[in-house]
Design a protein around this nucleic acid. Structure first.
Lengths: 205, 205
DNA sequence: GTCTATACCCCGATAGAC
DNA sequence: GTCTATCGGGGTATAGAC
């Protein structure tokens, strides 16, 4: 049951148990993956009992993973929205976003990558719910990039296509940066995506 | 101990136990990740006993994971070499590679993605050996792309930078295609990478 | 809603015969 | 090199008091 303050959307100093569990699950699965994260670990780090976890998530670990991915989805969507607003020119904004991601990744000692990839990878075959939630996250992020390009005057087809590649390249570059513990892939992806966006703009004008 | 035929590099109809274990581990971890794959499952599907696994890999699951990643590394390097040789123009070759990857991914019902990503993700913090093996794989693949670009006349710096983004974008697009069960991300990444390569060629000439 | 206790199973790893 | 048996621990999930 949600608290009154949560229903009203009011700010509160302490977070409800359910939200604490979701946030902890999202953070742990982002770093350790679905199978690498135990429900007991989640309950302990969230300062909740095992009974509370199954009270809020009777569907068990799978249901919790879906909520964790949705949480990461919203979280990254907010971050991306802010990054895209940092410059009017979409090429500049995307390049700035890549640099921001690189900085955050380095700051976490290369452990906090994409908040849905690690959870979704390896579970796709077993858990369609998790795969669907991850697909929705990617689609939402792509929609944000597409809107930014449309606002800058890109045609509908070009904007949608470019948004696909922007998200793919950022995902892959973050992955490569994590694996190699080096922000070079993200820096180069940002520069090349900016160049690509400008090239598409020139060909269609 | 390797068999005489293996030492001599001769073809043989049956594969040794050690190689069978490595191949099975590589395939299973590619689909299920490190924590999602059990040693017992590996030994069963490889038609080997648990004792044989620990005989060949006294370092246990971690040592086996490192060998599985190295196997996937070599395997994909061969595939990539073939794809890059499909056209003289690197832009055409990369786009063809993306289409080939899309076809293979679809053929596996979206489960056989990158052979090292799933294994490496989530274990980087715990197992430096695995992270290092994954980084070496990415570096090798990047080297192959860089050599292709250099052979086509690209300057050293441009070739290295582009190779980074080519690998990142292909990785990310394969990930996105897997998650969304749709080959669109790979198709678009191929087309955009070709466009980017041509744009860089024109700016430096 | 929260807590403890526990059922039940599979995990990685080892021992030692053959 | 191969095989079986087993150990100790942790996994998910449930039961039921409070």
């Amino acid at each position: 049951m949600r608290t009154r303050a949560e229903r009203a959307g009011e700010p509160e100093t302490t977070v409800g148990t359910r939200e604490r569990i979701v946030r902890t699950a999202s953070r742990l699965m982002q770093r350790q993956g679905y199978d690498g994260t135990g429900i007991k670990q989640i309950s302990q780090e969230a300062a909740a009992t095992l009974g509370s976890v199954y009270h809020f998530f009777p569907g068990g670990k799978q249901e919790l993973a879906v909520e964790a991915i949705r949480h990461g989805d919203r979280e990254f969507a907010e971050l991306l929205t802010g990054m895209l607003a940092s410059a009017e020119d979409p090429a500049e904004a995307i390049e700035a976003a890549a640099h921001t991601l690189a900085g955050q990744l380095r700051q976490s000692d290369w452990v906090d990558g994409c908040p849905v990839t690690a959870t979704a990878l390896g579970t796709a075959a077993r858990a369609p719910d998790i795969q669907r939630a991850a697909a929705e996250a990617f689609a939402r992020w792509r929609g944000l990039v597409e809107a930014k390009l449309r606002a800058a005057g890109f045609a509908e087809g070009d904007a949608g296509d470019l948004a696909h590649t922007v998200i793919s390249a950022l995902e892959g570059a973050e992955l490569a940066a994590q694996v190699s513990r080096d922000e070079t892939p993200l820096r180069l992806a940002g520069a090349h995506l900016a160049q690509l966006i400008r090239a598409v703009r020139n060909t269609s004008s």
